[in-house]
Design a binder for these strands. Structure first.
Lengths: 131, 131
DNA sequence: TATACTTATGAGCAAATGTTCATATGTTTG
DNA sequence: CAAACATATGAACATTTGCTCATAAGTATA
């Protein structure tokens, strides 16, 4: 015997839970309690560092260029119109901040966004700017 | 006559739609198409500028201090342990980037986060750092 | 192994940034 | 209006940052 209604309710519950758990922290009510007190100095320092990694036009161009798929250094350079050296220097910064991930492919090194978190931060910023 | 199953399905559908519409852009599939081509130079510049506004320890401290509720300049300064002048200078930067909003209250000026977008960006960064 | 090709790195320089100190601007109250 | 208090701003200085140029390091192929 099936219980159509309760099954559906379970799905609804699941969907709601997923909303609450949205990893991006966009649910203010569900997240606010995390900030009752000022976080540790060190943590705040790390947060600022994360934003610093995004805070340059060249690096932003690189990251957007990688949103579709990975690219080698030379292709990144030609896509965004920058020097190989400049791109390599900035990739170093992005790599240290764990925003991109290198992967050797013969002579080339393919860089990709580290994870969906990076994508989310970029999308979030883009929507903010576009408003 | 009621239709329990189809009503429940409607709710499920609504919940799913809400998930897709998550304003933070955390749904990669739903957002990816926005980045098929590299955005305009100017837009990328603005995105970098937005991140620059977050990219300083003092400013991050100020923003986190404001996550609970608005504060006047002096209170911000004492909360984060910084000079009145330093805080005022940085508030200027944050104001220009539309991350905070001033509101006169007698002799004081109460600063608050501009909108939930700012909250989201901070929460997002915090979760990224904490992983 | 020698050569060509791709990427990474170090030094040096110019520009941007954040702080302090002094002071100006604004606001309330005697 | 004068004095006290809160905030904003300008100049100067030190630090950080991002670029270029030259060159090193890693990889594939003749």
């Amino acid at each position: 015997m099936t219980h159509p209604l309760s099954e559906a309710e379970a799905v609804v519950e699941q969907a709601r839970a997923q909303l609450d758990a949205c990893p991006c922290g966009c649910n203010r009510e569900a997240t606010a309690h995390l900030f009752d007190t000022l976080p540790d100095e060190e943590l705040l320092y790390d947060v600022a560092d994360l934003f610093k990694a995004f805070a340059d036009t060249t690096r932003i161009k690189i990251l957007f260029a990688l949103m579709e798929h990975g690219l080698c250094v030379a292709d990144i350079a030609s896509t965004i119109g920058a020097t190989q050296s400049a791109v390599s220097h900035q990739l170093r910064t992005l790599k240290q901040a764990r925003l991109v991930r290198p992967q050797r492919d013969g002579k080339n090194v393919i860089y990709s966004l580290s994870d969906d978190h990076v994508f989310t931060m970029l999308a979030q910023a883009m929507t903010h700017v576009c408003e």
